[in-house]
Nucleic acid binder design. Sequence first.
DNA 1: GTGCAATGTGGAACCGTTTCCCTATGTCAT
DNA 2: ATGACATAGGGAAACGGTTCCACATTGCAC
Lengths: 342, 342
Amino acid sequence: MPAIGDVARLAGVSKATASRALSGRGYVAEDTRRRVQAAAARIGYIASPDAASLVTGRTKNVGVVIPFVNRWFFGEVLEGIERALLSAGYDLTLYNLAQAGPERDRVFDFFLARKRVDAVMAVGVDLTEREVEVITRRAKPILALGGTAPGAPRLAIDDRAAASLATEHLLKLGHTRIAHLAGAGSGAAARSVQGLRRSGFLESMDAAGLAPAGNSGGVVEAEMSLPGGYAAALQLLGHPGDRPTAIFAASDEVAFGAMRAAERLGIAMPSQLSIVGIDGHEYAELFGLTTVEQYPGEQGRIAVARVMRLLGEVSDDGAPEHDDTPLKTRLVVRSSTTSAPR
Amino acid sequence: MPAIGDVARLAGVSKATASRALSGRGYVAEDTRRRVQAAAARIGYIASPDAASLVTGRTKNVGVVIPFVNRWFFGEVLEGIERALLSAGYDLTLYNLAQAGPERDRVFDFFLARKRVDAVMAVGVDLTEREVEVITRRAKPILALGGTAPGAPRLAIDDRAAASLATEHLLKLGHTRIAHLAGAGSGAAARSVQGLRRSGFLESMDAAGLAPAGNSGGVVEAEMSLPGGYAAALQLLGHPGDRPTAIFAASDEVAFGAMRAAERLGIAMPSQLSIVGIDGHEYAELFGLTTVEQYPGEQGRIAVARVMRLLGEVSDDGAPEHDDTPLKTRLVVRSSTTSAPR
DNA sequence: GTGCAATGTGGAACCGTTTCCCTATGTCAT
DNA sequence: ATGACATAGGGAAACGGTTCCACATTGCAC
């Protein structure tokens, strides 16, 4: 494998000059630069990033911690991040970690804290204070996209507002018997995404002077997946007596599961049951699902841009350092919701 | 940041001994080893992988090239690979690359060929000879999981056999008017996954003395996704006249799309239309889809084990160097298929 | 007692870059 | 003429590990 010394010799310059010529830093005569570049190309020289990292301390690599890759939202975010990172010349090291615990501690202590990454992005993860601290103590930026992150910059939609938007859509249609399929799991904590969506729902109901309706008190916890929504909806809709006329599902995948359950139970949609979700899932249009769209791919790109700023990769002339504007959402009405039956 | 020299000084030994004590290579008195480890722990020493890579030439990192992360199969594989790699102490660098082209060339030349990864895994990618050569020339293992890879070790199910299995299931049920929703895209080449499934179908039909049935010659190309299957199925089932009684879909997601299309067209399932897919998708059970299961998560783990062998990480005592046994598949019959209507 | 292998440790070279510091030249304002 | 400054390039010292080689000690077979 040719090293920079070989290039230098071939071009008749010193290693120092060769390095400057190839990296574009410092003064090099245009003529010399061309000679060096030609030499490098001729012998197929490829710089060793390890050697460079060793001295510069920067790796051109960011670590992404994500609990799932196979849920639509997370997959989209990941794709968005990957693309943006790649075009910024960065590599992406993936850590697929679900629950906090010894496994995650190991990753933070032995992988992320090592000098392999310049920054950490946590997607939909509820970070502990210790985790944030492990990274920041190493003077590395850490950015959360969704989830929670005590003491770290965070990018997210306004989950509470999104839930209210969905709920108020149902209220405007005249529904009074509305249930919520809430996200279960570690994220059941109040400040988590699932918790915020739940409180948005409850607030809007409260403001309308209504209580959640249906079996199990009108709020049933569902794993944030299609089968999770299916199971929860079966439970919610099981008793024909006090059946709600509308459901606000914590995610589109949960909503799809609920639609499937309604179909199985022979409940006509949307005439007997309206359903609204959150996400803007790829399949929402095909299944006619009314939803509060968010744009995970774009969120990934925005998050990367923010990290690049934190890394000083872009001149942040005048860009507000602390931009806490929530990410974009939009209600899209389709055929899964209609006026309340009378 | 403490370096190994600091540890050595604190433990009263040389850098050489400290290195040996921490890595476990070479002779170190048990007593000394403990002293060094205690010193390292005390000052929170973390070894720099870059420095180590520089001299050893190994990075403990493998690159994974994958065209999608948001299709079920690929997401599962990725999760399986990630888990296995992590527990082998390796990092995973993700390259989400769809079509061959300049973008992919750039990644192979400027990222993968660089010394950042010890090996490359290509999942469901049709690699060019040049791409394989770029990696192998650097004396790095490259392993394909699915897709095609001229001159590289490859792990895959027997796609042709899986397609035959699905088709023969329909034939045994007495269907004679059978159509195929074939995978479209770059993978339409004969040796690709989609191509192999198509020929498996055609062979079985041929062996039964039947021709594909339905609109558009009984074989319609579909993008390998739910909306893709939906669109293709609408086209296939559009003309009530020569409608097939059964469909073999190239993947479960395509099958789901077809089911949705049938529903939209008011075609009763399975009485008027049977559908079988390939994959063993997470949702198959819920939707009652008959399918030829494969096990992508496990495939990922197997692929990692293979790569570890190629990297000499495990003693491959007696293990067959060239194991070309296809990966496991299994037909699972559910409610989406039934006897042909008469 | 000698020879040899196994064990234990340190010094120093090395991996492949970047960057600091120093020197040299040309240009331009004073 | 004299600085000041921008441009250009070289030598050498990092960066933080691993490993080669040399040397010392010990145990054991002969």
